[in-house]
């Protein structure tokens, strides 16, 4: 089985936000929630870079470690998913996540959070693959159809790569060797405790 990862080549990302839009559309993500976002660091300064970021599907995921109801699980492809029927919306995964991936719809009074929502790597949820109930709760299940997450699939500059960690790392390495520079794999040290060495 593959070990699915995301890799954003910040030297290619042009901050077009198409990944953000594609994700919202493909998964019918509710208003106010962004499973994926593009962050620009050093905006307007030399060395400006944009990085498309979502759940990184960490090795030893912090969200799963702190969840008080233990609603997370890791698939055979190493995708970190959660069961919304078990989630109580406590917000702990949000405190622990290094990437700000978990988000909550606002329901009820005060800070009453609804069920947590985050990137599913376009792999749906615990229900039967590609059913209406699965789509309503989690969005598309492209992985079950043999497709990769839409954000990476439609990236116009192919900055955002999704797929088996070793394969996307080798694609990135080749790029860096060819062009002679690369700012590295953002989030990899934090998420996977490893980096892409060129």
């Amino acid at each position: 089985m593959a070990r699915m990862k995301f890799l954003c080549d910040a030297d290619r990302c042009i901050e077009c936000n198409a990944c953000v839009t594609a994700c919202k559309n493909e998964n019918d993500v509710p208003w106010g929630i962004n499973r994926r976002r593009v962050v620009t660091i050093n905006d307007g300064k030399p060395g400006e870079r944009s990085i498309s970021m979502a759940c990184m599907h960490c090795t030893d995921a912090p969200c799963a470690a702190v969840c008080p109801v233990s609603c997370f699980y890791t698939t055979a492809d190493a995708v970190v998913l959660h069961d919304k029927d078990l989630c109580i919306g406590c917000g702990y995964c949000f405190y622990a996540c290094p990437f700000g991936a978990p988000q909550y719809p606002r329901v009820g009074n005060f800070g009453g959070r609804g069920k947590m929502d985050k990137c599913t790597y376009c792999a749906g949820g615990p229900q039967q693959d590609n059913t209406a109930v699965e789509y309503a709760q989690y969005g598309a299940n492209r992985l079950a159809e043999g497709k990769l997450p839409l954000c990476a699939e439609m990236c116009s500059t192919k900055a955002l790569l999704a797929g088996d960690g070793e394969i996307i790392a080798s694609i990135y390495k080749e790029r860096v060797q060819r062009r002679g520079y690369g700012s590295g794999a953002w989030g990899w040290r934090t998420a996977y405790r490893e980096t892409v060495t060129v």
């Binding site: 962050v39 990085i51 290094p98 990437f99 953002w186 989030g187």
Partner: peptide, 10 residues
């Protein structure tokens, strides 16, 4: 969402 990585989570 402007916070890209927050190591304090760990």
């Amino acid at each position: 969402a402007a916070s890209l990585i927050q190591p304090e989570g760990r």
